[in-house]
Design a protein around this nucleic acid. Structure first.
Lengths: 247, 247
DNA sequence: CGCAAACTTGATACCTTTCAATTCAGGTGG
DNA sequence: CCACCTGAATTGAAAGGTATCAAGTTTGCG
């Protein structure tokens, strides 16, 4: 049986939306007939750049992506990480010009969906519109949580919080379990995401390993003491709005 | 002529949306007939609390509001400030339970709009839905910019950036001009918004005054050297998506 | 097998926090 | 009209968490 990447992409999107509410046949079919263009990209490639006016949205099918902003003197702030099922630049549907860039972290396959098709989709299917809107709102909830981290949490708590967040997100997509998950980020990436220095990330990581909270090697994270890590990081997953999935 | 506060609230909303795109008569009328309930609140009162499941959204008509999260040990992170025309908890329309609180900063008048009415509005008027969606996306853009600040900018730059942002937002609503604007925030508020300490905010403020960049007294801010302040803070207002207004 | 990227380590500097008073400002009541 | 009161702003001294800078040392991969 031949591989059908297009279908895989839309199926992924349907699965993701159905984890929130069941869809009607009509809605499902509307999603299936979305004209997607699937691309395979290498690691660390820009998908959309700050200032661009995209004509497509990008659904992550496989691998990791991240959004980031560059400042003067080469400083970088990573704004979010994205995994399969995410549409990181869905916002371009209603805000024409990008205020940040989007890039792959790992090798990744992404599906591009034309704005017109999505525009038509949300015009005809208000419930799908709501679901997609909701998705951008959860994105914003994650931003808020990161703001709390950078504003009020120590380096240790910030790193622990990010690890808990990524684990839970991956687990919800069936990409992690048993406290094991992929974490294809360098210490520089972590530093740029958390507002820290790579050197300091390294030292905190060593402390975490020393305290037997986790293991992190060869791009995979093992959380050995979930309870201790999540409580000292004050991680409360409600903001991810995943409870529907559990039901 | 008697004061009609309800009408004032919907008019404000219409003005705000029309600053982005012109509305049809039908759309304008739909907005006008929104059943709003206007409340006058004192300063520093919670409007919605973390964990609540609101049944209404809150349009700020006058005064300032802010969103915040509380952490253990009484730490607080302010997530955003809101002025007339903003609907800070519009997200509750699609994400039922609040992951943060919303409170007044000053005495304020706010208009509550039932979810059902907004739900009906966006179902019947896709263009209004897009505009409101867009509003939540700009909110997220501001979060991202604050993340950059807390992650990668010095205290000086962060404070300067916030002042530029608030000035531009207020000016766009006709609430500021000539580099003068209201700024009814205490140094504690600023500290909690920027991830700093009140003591440090105080010292940086003194430096800014010393360098003749601004004056801040009696709850009003005067930016005396816009160019210098905005360039050292690397303030680029594109993320606020206000250019439409200028046209 | 060898190179480049990623990770470690050490020593030092510094921005920001802490803690603890003290001063100032605006609103109130006598 | 002034003394009083409370929240806000200011100051000083010292500690601390992170950043910097500058080497090493691994690891992964071609």
């Amino acid at each position: 049986m031949p591989f059908a990447p297009d279908q895989h992409a839309t199926t992924l999107l349907i699965r993701k939306l159905e984890s929130i509410t069941p869809l009607s046949d009509e809605e499902r079919q509307a999603l299936e007939s979305l004209p997607v263009r699937v691309h395979v990209l290498g690691a660390r490639q820009d998908i959309v750049r700050d200032g661009d006016r995209p004509t497509h949205c990008c659904l992550v099918v496989d691998g990791w992506a991240c959004r980031y902003k560059l400042l003067s003197q080469g400083k970088r702030q990573i704004l979010s990480f994205h995994i399969a099922g995410d549409i990181p630049d869905l916002l371009s549907l209603h805000v024409p010009t990008m205020d940040h860039s989007l890039a792959t972290v790992t090798n990744a396959t992404v599906a591009f969906i034309p704005h017109e098709s999505l525009q038509a989709l949300v015009a005809c299917h208000p419930r799908l519109a709501s679901l997609l809107w909701r998705d951008t709102l959860i994105d914003a909830a994650i931003f808020r949580e990161w703001m709390v981290g950078m504003g009020r949490r120590s380096a240790f708590e910030r790193i622990g919080h990010l690890f808990c967040e990524m684990y839970v997100k991956l687990e919800a997509m069936g990409l992690a379990g048993d406290y094991h998950c992929p974490l294809p980020l360098t210490q520089v990436d972590l530093a740029d995401a958390l507002g820290l220095t790579p050197v300091h990330v390294n030292r905190v990581l060593q402390e975490m390993r020393g305290r037997r909270l986790l293991e992190l090697r060869r791009r995979t994270l093992v959380i050995e003491a979930w309870d201790e890590l999540s409580t000292t990081a004050e991680f409360d997953p409600r903001y991810l709005q995943l409870e529907a999935r559990a039901a």
